[in-house]
Write a protein that binds this DNA or RNA. Structure first.
Length: 236
DNA sequence: GCGACAG
DNA sequence: ATCTTGTCGC
C-alpha cells in the first residue's frame, strides 16, 4: 500500500512549528471511523545509540476471542512489522512526530492488513499546537488514531481516582480546553495520558483504551508494539 | 529571566 | 528513547 507524502520531513525547528500550525487545522476531533475489525498499535525504538530508528506496528483482530472458559478475552495478533532506517532528527519536545512518523509510515507501508483504528505511543491533541505524534500520524495515514502516552507533555490535571478506569480531564490554555484524559489503567500505578489523535473524540478514545486494557498499565496494542520496538519481544 | 519538556 | 544492578512483591 502506498501513502502519498504531504511534506518533506527534514525541516528546521521553526519551519516544523509553522507546519504544525497549518496541519493542526486538518486534525479532526469528531468521530469518523469505520467498524473496527483490525486495531493496530505503533511504537518507535532506537538502536546503536540512536543511530537507527525501529518502527514497530502490531495489528490485532477485533473483537477479541476467548482463549478458553473462564479465561480473559485475548486480542489475536494478525500481523507484525518492524521497519529499520537511519534516524533523521534528534528528539525535540513538541516536535517528536518529525523524528518518528516517517519510520512509522514506512512500517505501515509494509502491512498487508489495513487497520481501521490505530493507537500510538505518545500524545494526540494533548500538544502545545494540538498536533502530537498520534494526530500527525493519523493525518498521514488518513486513519483514526488515539494517543496513549506514559507521561505529560502539556496541560493541567488533578489526580485520578484509585480504581482501574478512573480518570480526570487534562486541560490546557486560558479557557481550560479539554485536550485529553489522565487514566488510571492499573491500581497503584502512575496513570497514562489518553488523547484524541485524528477522527476520534475523547469519549471514544477513552472507551477504546479501556476496553483494550490487559494485565499491564498500557493497552494491549501499544504494549505489544512497545515490546517489539524495543526488541524485548519476538524478533522482527 | 526561570522552569517544563511525549519519546 | 537508551544505558543498567539490585530489589520488592505476587
Amino acid at each position: 500500500m502506498s501513502i502519498s507524502p504531504l511534506h518533506d520531513w527534514n525541516l528546521a525547528p521553526s519551519e516544523a512549528i509553522a507546519l504544525q500550525k497549518r496541519l493542526a487545522s486538518r486534525v479532526e476531533r469528531a468521530d469518523r471511523l469505520e467498524p473496527v475489525r483490525h486495531l493496530a498499535g505503533v511504537d518507535i525504538g532506537f538502536e546503536q545509540g540512536g543511530e537507527i530508528t525501529r518502527a514497530a506496528v502490531v495489528v490485532l483482530a477485533w473483537p477479541p476471542g476467548a482463549s478458553g472458559e473462564f479465561e480473559p478475552a485475548t486480542l489475536e495478533i494478525v500481523e507484525q512489522v518492524v521497519h529499520r532506517e537511519p534516524t533523521r532528527m534528534p528528539y525535540v519536545p513538541g516536535l517528536l512526530s518529525f523524528r518518528e512518523v516517517p519510520a512509522a509510515v514506512a512500517a505501515f507501508d509494509e502491512l498487508t492488513v489495513w487497520p481501521e483504528l490505530v493507537m500510538v505511543d505518545g500524545q494526540g491533541i494533548a500538544h502545545p499546537r494540538r498536533i502530537g505524534v498520534a494526530s500527525h500520524l493519523g493525518l498521514w495515514l488518513d486513519l483514526p488514531t488515539i494517543g496513549v502516552a506514559k507521561s505529560r507533555l502539556c496541560g493541567r490535571h488533578g489526580e485520578p481516582g484509585p480504581a482501574r478506569g478512573d480518570w480526570t480531564p487534562l486541560v490546557d490554555g486560558p479557557e481550560d480546553e479539554v485536550i485529553g484524559a489522565v487514566l488510571r489503567s492499573r491500581v497503584k500505578v502512575k496513570p497514562i495520558f489518553v488523547s484524541p489523535g485524528h477522527r476520534v473524540s475523547l469519549p471514544t478514545s477513552l472507551a477504546w483504551v479501556i476496553r483494550c486494557l490487559g494485565p499491564t498499565k498500557l493497552p494491549e496494542p501499544t504494549r505489544l508494539a512497545d515490546r517489539l520496538a524495543s526488541r524485548r519481544g519476538r524478533v522482527g
